[in-house]
Design a protein around this nucleic acid. Sequence first.
DNA 1: CTGCCTGCAAACTCTTTGCACGAAT
DNA 2: ATTCGTGCAAAGAGTTTGCAGGCAG
Lengths: 155, 155
Amino acid sequence: MSDDLPREKFQAYLTRKGLRVTNQRVAIFDAAFAQKEHFTAEQLLDHARAIDDSVSRATVYRTLPLMTESQILREVDIGSGEKYYRPASSTNTQVAQVVCVDCDKIFEISAPFMEWYGSTVSLKLGLKPISQRLQVSAHCIAYRQAGRCPNRIKK
Amino acid sequence: MSDDLPREKFQAYLTRKGLRVTNQRVAIFDAAFAQKEHFTAEQLLDHARAIDDSVSRATVYRTLPLMTESQILREVDIGSGEKYYRPASSTNTQVAQVVCVDCDKIFEISAPFMEWYGSTVSLKLGLKPISQRLQVSAHCIAYRQAGRCPNRIKK
DNA sequence: CTGCCTGCAAACTCTTTGCACGAAT
DNA sequence: ATTCGTGCAAAGAGTTTGCAGGCAG
């Protein structure tokens, strides 16, 4: 069971859509799957450029939808202005996000009941469920004690 | 039990913070509480201007945080670029949003278990919970049948 | 008078798009 | 050749902010 599965899935998706497997798309893919944490489009651009410095911001923004549509990436919107992304895997399809409001660090926790809840509630309204997100906002304990978040980077 | 409670709560908040109860702030408040559905900053501006045409966009954006901080308004982020707002009440503090992805119409459904879940999960991570949101995205049945959403307005 | 408030317009952030060049089949 | 892909820079949407004047206490 190899980690190359996403790569194959992505390339299969591109081919199926009649799209080309370009150097830039591969660089962006590699950069995305080298990340250990959630990342933004801008961070992805930086990392992709380290692999292939011809990658432009526009191409990153054009490639991200391809990666989410092909199900190899998951989009995480914590309502902070910018969107975060992370590799999707069969083990993290139903997760809740716990977000530190001080540093925007995102923790994820399995929440299998979400899917059931989404279906139940949608059907009650005559809707067809597509997806559900559960997000908890919280302060870290360190913040409560020290008055600031140890992970905090932004302004 | 009067609907003027939010007004008093808002004015008390302003006074406590040493802020003034201006005509513009009152007009924006009145406009917000006259809405039957979720509304955006832009819609609020329109309605506030119908009450007091001197209200500017800037003042609306400066007043919205005052109303959410004073707990009379709730912010609803459905990840669509713009934020929605609606009056907060004791009966709708723990609600899930069900959003039609075709028309962005927002349905709300009580989900009391959310608070319990947020606390459980936060404490497990050593965090202090602040709030939680549960959002379900769905298509309306009409969309499935007709190929388009009957409520759809945007492009 | 002393500040808080305001409208205006410019600035900002993140993302999308038009265009002409470039690369792959 | 033809089609798709790309970088660049400009445009876009929503929101925030600097400033000079205005109004409340």
